[in-house]
Design a protein around this nucleic acid. Sequence first.
DNA 1: TAGAATATACGAGAAACTTCGTTAAACACT
DNA 2: AGTGTTTAACGAAGTTTCTCGTATATTCTA
Lengths: 127, 127
Amino acid sequence: MNNIPKPTKTELAILNIMWTISPATVRQIHEEIIKSGKTSYTTTLKMLQVMHQKGLVTRNSEYKAHIYEPALTKKETQKQMLDDLKNRLFGGSISSLVLQALGSNAKTNQSEIDEIKALLEKVEKGK
Amino acid sequence: MNNIPKPTKTELAILNIMWTISPATVRQIHEEIIKSGKTSYTTTLKMLQVMHQKGLVTRNSEYKAHIYEPALTKKETQKQMLDDLKNRLFGGSISSLVLQALGSNAKTNQSEIDEIKALLEKVEKGK
DNA sequence: TAGAATATACGAGAAACTTCGTTAAACACT
DNA sequence: AGTGTTTAACGAAGTTTCTCGTATATTCTA
């Protein structure tokens, strides 16, 4: 099977770093992690190994220091997790999710609103 | 402290049932749960006890069979979890989340689109 | 009122997730 | 070559989450 599991909380934190600096070695990733909290190098290493085992990241072992990359783009992961949340809490309805998201957040700026509107038009046209 | 933690996967499944049938006894909740999979009554009971301990549900112990209710409404929980996802995967930007949600989902029907548009107008006016 | 049914409490074990120390191999530099 | 540094691998322990059996109390009913 080719199914990549949903990342856990800690795994997601690591992926967020990797989306900005990968391809990267464990050392490089670890340097970023410790900017916001203390952790052992081996903890980071172990996390990457487990994530590789799960298929969340790929790695190149050609050199002594392996080089890691996320298996999915940030966008793909966003889609995956949004989909999960939609199914588990919004009865499978994306619009219900969107309504709730917009409704509980008034500080959306004009250009963002325009962007959303434009996208809505596109969705409308595409029917 | 008054802080209610984010429900886990299993806890959320139970809350989903409770939002439709609560106030309810463990027995009633359990009957719903076993409609989609086998579990022991005591498992359900223990989950509710832990959830009560965490503050996710309230209970009335006046009678032999305690009566449970969610501590938060479904809407409040939706807001809470959307907020969490937004912070952990969308850099704190709701509009980026909304764009991704709408973009990766073409099958939004017309009335839903209209609803979203109306809400956008409201957000726009309220500035 | 005695036995059956139904409920809670509780603890133990399984499973998933996270952290870290130890070991050994690869490499870097005199 | 010999010493120190950097790395991967691995296992073990700590945590959280989930599942379930057993013990005990309460309620029902025949």
